[in-house]
Design a binder for these strands. Structure first.
Ligand SMILES: [Mn+2]
Ligand SMILES: [Mn+2]
Ligand SMILES: [Zn+2]
Ligand SMILES: [Zn+2]
Lengths: 137, 137
DNA sequence: GGTGTAAATGAGAAAGGTTTTCATTTATAT
DNA sequence: ATATAAATGAAAACCTTTCTCATTTACACC
């Protein structure tokens, strides 16, 4: 019952919010742009404005339900937050996104912040390349 | 004599190009947005259009004279290319930018790409935090 | 030093993703 | 059922960056 998820984070239960959540939970593209979500809603027969999709995604982000990737010079993509931090590999040919976790990198980042006198609040790491699938074509 | 630098990379020697180069070489803000460069030119008395600044910076980037950072969801910043790769720490309070090099991270990134079957072409890493200066205030 | 031609420039329009505005509709507390 | 604060849709605005196109300029050649 997602209604409770929404109430828990102080958001009223509305159709746009439920539907956006549903899209994110049932898609097989874990990483979606606002436009992707908007189109998926249309295909589902829900006429929800793009501005609302942006608003809802941003609220979900603030609420910690969703996280946002800001990809190099383009549009943002969103994914359901699963509580576990990870970083991303992006295929520059087909835009495929893969995920990884590397504790060595995570630890080095913290060490660098300390060295430089920074109180680290966040980091972003993207590895760009050509995916296996695109190499053979 | 910067004229030679320009000719060397196949660019005609023009006033906008010389002046943009001069700004980048003499500023004490190593990392500047196109707007920053534009304003610096104005203060210098040079009326060079913003579109030209963007064009010139992009050409310099293509020529390898300058590199571009694409910071999280905002405007790009440029810096003179010095031949050595480095990554960045960004202060979320004052926007200060510091640089670092970490061979362990560089190597782990390559290893991850291999593991995932990616032919790595590039990567981007930003550590966000509160700088020393901003912590005490 | 002139001349021709391709390249560069400036001004403004356009692009593309995202946010804001504001009138209308809706959720929810009472 | 009612009141009220919040949410929505549609369109306009925003912001950075790129493009268009008329005009100017750099530079190869005579
Ligand atoms: Mn992810
Ligand atoms: Mn730098
Ligand atoms: Zn691919
Ligand atoms: Zn700071």
């Amino acid at each position: 019952m997602e209604s409770q998820d929404l109430r828990k984070v102080g958001l009223k239960v509305t159709l746009p919010r439920l539907k956006v959540l549903e899209i994110l939970e049932t898609t097989d593209h874990r990483h979606m742009s606002a436009e992707d979500v908007y189109k998926a809603l249309l295909e589902m027969g829900e006429e929800i404005g793009l501005a609302t999709v942006y608003r809802v995604l941003t609220q979900f982000e603030d609420a910690g339900l969703v996280s946002r990737l800001s990809i190099d010079g383009g549009h943002a993509v969103f994914e359901l937050e699963d509580g576990s931090h990870h970083d991303h590999l992006l295929c520059v040919r087909c835009n495929r996104i893969e995920e990884f976790v590397d504790d060595v990198i995570e630890q080095r980042q913290r060490a660098i912040a300390v060295e430089k006198g920074f109180e680290m609040t966040d980091h972003s790491l993207y590895i760009y390349g050509i995916c296996r699938h695109c190499q053979s074509s």
